[in-house]
Design a binder for these strands. Structure first.
Lengths: 212, 212
DNA sequence: CCATGTGAAGTGATTCACAGCC
DNA sequence: GGCTGTGAATCACTTCACATGG
């Protein structure tokens, strides 16, 4: 079904996340059908852009009518690959790690954190949201045969590379890196960097007086 | 000093955040001077791109030598507008809000959360990291004369618009919206949306088998 | 001599405009 | 009639290539 193989721009994926957010909001409000115009207005985007983004993955609309909200949510979810469960492990049980483990919304979205690891002896054995923190050394054995595809790094930057090596060694193919540190991984492993300050920086830039 | 007024692309701002992260890492490692080539490699970017991004804001390098790491960090920080303190308020003292209030790193970066608000009577009066949760109704009076420029929304989506209206009414010009909901604000107010799932979606997309 | 800063060339995304279809 | 899906035209960003200057 999805993805004609003509290279989909990263920014299209970013926008799909926005469309999904807005569509879910519309669904909650009881909207059944929406056309690209009003959807674009709600997303503060351009209608043709939405139509083009969607046609990367298929034809989901009805000419003269628009898109069925529920169907489009399902189609976009399938296009993004979030119409299934993804098992994850998290390494680094600090403040951020604990907050993520406790954030049940991830589970609701199909991202199940099934293991928490840390190398700090004071944290090993602690329990958060029903998950015991295990020594990072045991990562590989603990996730064997569990179909874990995603690793989340929430360690300090100086441990990020070592942790990434552990994850790669354990067969992980996708890494979500919250550590403020670029990491090196083999070409078949995807890394997404989360910079929790980026949006604050953008705001500061927008608000700062540059009129020197 | 900063910003020749020739429209700076949003994506340049995003990249500056990355450069800053990598430069700070280099600084921790004791690197004193770096040229655009090695910096680009560390950022997984293109050297001319870095040079062009930087020249939007000034000339920070020395021909034949490169960039002084400390000076460049200062220059980029000034360019982004994060070489100063930004007072913030946070509305929505749920899990996410509490995690942000407790995250002392924000303070270290100059983003000081000086007020926490919620409209849930069960949360009002609670205290996190030395900050008492106050009823949202008192937002305006509480932040008057405090030079608060940024508001952070961490409420459920259904309250986001109302909270945004409160913030705008209180004179806030920048909003960081963690709620999965688009909001409408006057043209002179900047909104940055944080979708905590976006990077997970990107990973899922990268890992999902589209070869149907 | 080496790396920056920068116009020019190239590439890729966005928007337009309309044919196709319900 | 109205809205989607899509080639064509436009616009914006990226990369190249080199003149400039320490």
């Amino acid at each position: 079904m999805s993805a004609k193989h003509e290279h989909i721009p990263k920014i299209t994926i970013a926008r799909l996340s926005i469309y999904l957010q807005v569509l879910e909001q519309m669904q909650r409000e009881g909207v059944e059908v929406v056309s690209s115009g009003p959807l674009a207005k709600a997303c503060r985007a351009n209608a043709s852009q939405i139509r083009k983004d969607l046609t990367y993955f298929g034809e989901f609309g009805v000419r003269g009518v628009g898109y069925n909200v529920c169907e489009l949510i399902r189609a976009v979810s399938r296009s993004l690959g979030i119409d299934r469960e993804w098992n994850c492990v998290l390494i680094g049980a600090g403040n951020l790690g604990k907050a993520l483990i406790g954030h049940r919304e991830f589970e609701r979205r199909g991202f199940r954190i099934i293991g928490a690891f840390d190398c700090d002896p004071f944290k090993i054995g602690e329990e958060f949201a029903g998950l015991e923190v295990v020594c990072t050394r045991h990562l590989k054995e603990r996730i064997q045969d569990k179909n874990v595809r995603i690793g989340v790094i929430t360690t300090p930057p100086e441990h990020a590379q070592r942790v990434a090596d552990y994850l790669v060694g354990a067969g992980i193919k996708g890494i979500l890196n919250y550590a403020p540190m670029r990491i090196v991984v083999p070409a078949d492993v995807t890394v997404e960097y989360v910079d929790i300050f980026h949006h604050l920086y953008s705001l500061a830039f927008a608000l700062a007086p540059h009129k020197s």
